[in-house]
Amino acid sequence: MKRLVGIFVRGLVAENPLLMLMIGLCSALAVTTSVENAIGMGLAMTFVIVFAELVISLFRKLIPNSVRIPTFIIVIAAFTTIIDLSMKAYFPELSKSLGVFIPLIVVNCIIMGRVEAFASKEKPLDAVVDALGMGLGYTWVLVGIAAFRELLGNGTLLSAQIMPEAYQPILFFTLPPGGFLVFALFISFNIWLKRVLDRSDRAPVKEAA
């Protein structure tokens, strides 16, 4: 159990796909102009990574090493299309505003990376837990960046007006350069968070010694 919690938490901070591994950035920067988009994108991505890791981990002994990459892509593409079609049918507005970034989950390096590095070697349960950690690690960063950018760049949160009417939105945050700046702030925040966590991890060890 403790091992599973460890696998899960790793994706949130210590090995956060966006802030530590720094993969899958282009979609992350593009969709974070509004919190709604960020939540949608994060959940869609979590869905795909969980099922892709589960399926590949289940069949890991049947996948020949030399064709593993094409096999992974078939599995990932299938789940991506499933979520794309479902969103189009049941959340048409959200699907419209995310546009091409949902189909592009197929080539998201986070999924490919975790499937290759983790799911193809580990047991299904571990793989699912790892996927959940990575997926939520991706989602929280997306939502955080989006909240920052939407609030300052547009004066709203989840499309509700938060800032007073007189507030002049700082356009910079909605535009790509603002995205990079906020992203950098999140990286430094995460490094700080990791250090704090590491310290609290080490403290009890010292006492024992």
Partner: peptide, 10 residues
């Protein structure tokens, strides 16, 4: 055949 099987499943 393995690839075909996965593709068929998908």
């Amino acid at each position: 055949l393995v690839l075909a099987a996965f593709a068929a499943g998908a």
